[in-house]
């Protein structure tokens, strides 16, 4: 299953990057969102996959059952998801503000600071 997910991750990176190379600001944001998904999945898969044994300690037990999933990548991904959300919310508002100011979604029109 790791192999398949590796392909999915590659696909997410590819489409994300493709969207980022478009001229539309909205596509850019969508692309970044895909990139974030890809990175999160990558960390998750990097810690290897385990089916159906979450790292929870049963009431009264001392440790999670043997063969339970690696909890650390999960914690890392959780942090990354939340951070990603914060960034994305800001990005969306930036996009909105940009559109209100410039009345365009075309990134090629946004070169006034450099030319």
């Amino acid at each position: 299953m790791e192999t398949i997910l590796a392909i999915v991750i590659g696909g997410l990176y590819g489409t994300g990057l493709y969207l980022m190379m478009r001229r539309s600001m909205v596509k850019l944001v969508l692309g970044l969102a895909l990139l974030a998904h890809a990175a999160n999945l990558l960390i998750f898969v990097g810690g290897r996959l385990v089916r159906g044994v979450p790292p929870l300690v049963a009431n009264g037990a001392i440790a999670p059952p043997d063969g339970s999933a690696d909890p650390l990548p999960q914690a890392l991904v959780l942090t990354a998801i939340v951070i990603g959300f914060g960034v994305q919310a800001f990005l969306l508002v930036l996009l909105k503000r940009g559109y209100t100011l410039m009345r365009t979604d075309d990134l090629d029109d946004m070169r006034t600071t450099e030319t």
Partner: peptide, 8 residues
């Protein structure tokens, strides 16, 4: 702290 859930 013991089951899925949490502050977030």
């Amino acid at each position: 702290h013991n089951e899925p859930g949490g502050g977030f």
